[in-house]
């Protein structure tokens, strides 16, 4: 026992922790943020006129807002070492049922409906999302069916149910008021839908990093048995996490309605994969126990920026999925190497 090895904690003032800079550089959140910054800078340098245009940025942000909300929920799920394949279908289900509910209480067409109807639509969207989330959560935590299978099931079932609701067609009649305010409205140049997504994301980040709920989310993903032995209700917590993911998918469905002015039944088949990719790109470990909402924000924007940027600089946009795939696989490979190195001690 050498003296320099024995830096007991009593000699450290209680605030002396790993220095901030070291903590930051040790986290992959920082690196993934840098990747995003480099992407923006590169595209910006090539075509500053097109990239830094207000409308380009507004559109980029608004299009990404819905995926961001889905990905925040997915972050919690993946940190518990679970997966949720159903988010896109739940989004569609919530979107369709909300639009139909608004139409129903407005006598068939909600285009001119007021705030009361809109609030009702929001409630329907959030509750229907929550119900799917709860179903997922109960099947995973109580029936002990692997999350992959449960949510693969609800992925199909929610999509099918959404198609059944309106016989497979899109639902129009979204209130104009909703679209004008939350869909296309802006505040200080920022699309309102982006503000909603930003608020949701900030709340999600706080929930994950500062509360007991967040702490238990990490603990369950890190070592379920350890969590159980210290008396954490693992089943209850898993149920809540999938409930959260479903609720956010419901909210995302409502945001989609506001933005597109129609409840679309197609085009969300790969939302689940996009959200998973965003979360994993953002440094959240697919094996659970590690991750952050901030990382997920970066992870959401990297594919979005790539797509927009490649189009603007004239590269075929078909390169975008290839580029994202490479970054994604590299991110997981990095995560795995780090874990292996760490666990060898």
């Amino acid at each position: 026992m050498t003296t320099d090895e024995k830096t007991t904690l009593s000699t450290l003032p209680d605030e002396q922790r790993t220095p901030l800079l070291k903590r930051l550089t040790g986290a992959n959140t920082l690196w993934i943020g840098l990747v995003l910054l480099v992407l923006v800078a590169t595209f910006g340098a090539i075509r500053p006129d097109a990239i830094f245009q207000v409308t380009t940025l507004q559109f980029l942000l608004a299009e990404t807002a819905v995926l961001l909300v889905l990905s925040v929920g997915m972050t919690f799920v993946i940190i518990t070492s679970g997966i949720d394949l159903s988010v896109g279908s739940v989004l569609v289900f919530a979107s369709v049922s909300s639009a139909m509910a608004m139409n129903a209480v407005s006598g068939g067409d909600a285009t001119n409906a007021g705030w009361g109807v809109i609030a009702f639509g929001l409630l329907v969207a959030v509750v229907s999302g929550a119900v799917w989330g709860l179903l997922n959560g109960l099947l995973i935590s109580r029936a002990k069916i692997p999350p992959l299978i449960v949510t693969l099931g609800s992925f199909g079932a929610a999509q099918g149910a959404a198609l059944l609701l309106n016989n497979g067609s899109n639902v129009s009649g979204i209130p104009d008021k909703l679209n004008r305010t939350f869909g296309s409205g802006t505040y200080l140049g920022i699309p309102n839908i982006v503000i909603v997504a930003a608020v949701v994301t900030a709340l999600g980040a706080l929930l994950l990093s500062t509360t007991r709920f967040g702490r238990y989310t990490y603990a369950v993903g890190s070592n379920e048995e350890a969590a159980r032995r210290v008396g954490i209700s693992v089943r209850g917590h898993l149920t809540k996490v999938y409930l959260l993911a479903g609720t956010l998918a419901g909210l995302a469905g409502f945001m989609g309605n506001a933005f597109f002015r129609v409840a679309v039944v197609t085009g969300h088949e790969t939302d689940n994969l996009n959200a998973i990719a965003a979360v994993v790109l953002g440094g959240t470990s697919i094996f659970g126990g590690m991750g952050s909402v901030l990382g997920t924000v970066f992870g959401v924007f990297i594919p979005a920026v790539l797509e927009k940027g490649l189009v603007i600089i004239g590269v075929k946009e078909f390169w975008q999925p290839i580029a994202v795939a490479i970054v994604l696989v590299a991110a997981v490979w990095l995560d795995q190497t780090r874990r292996r190195a760490r666990n060898q001690r």
Binding site: R212, R215, Y218, A219, S222, N223, A226, A227, V230, G289
Partner: peptide
């Protein structure tokens, strides 16, 4: 039976977290 991704302090208080006083504590902070 420790949670390998949490730090020692978090592990020690796992299941017995200290919450902030007041409203923040009620929110589970």
């Amino acid at each position: 039976a420790v949670a390998p991704d949490l730090d020692p302090a978090a592990n020690m208080f796992l299941g017995r977290e200290i919450l902030k006083p007041g409203v923040l504590g009620l929110l589970g902070v």
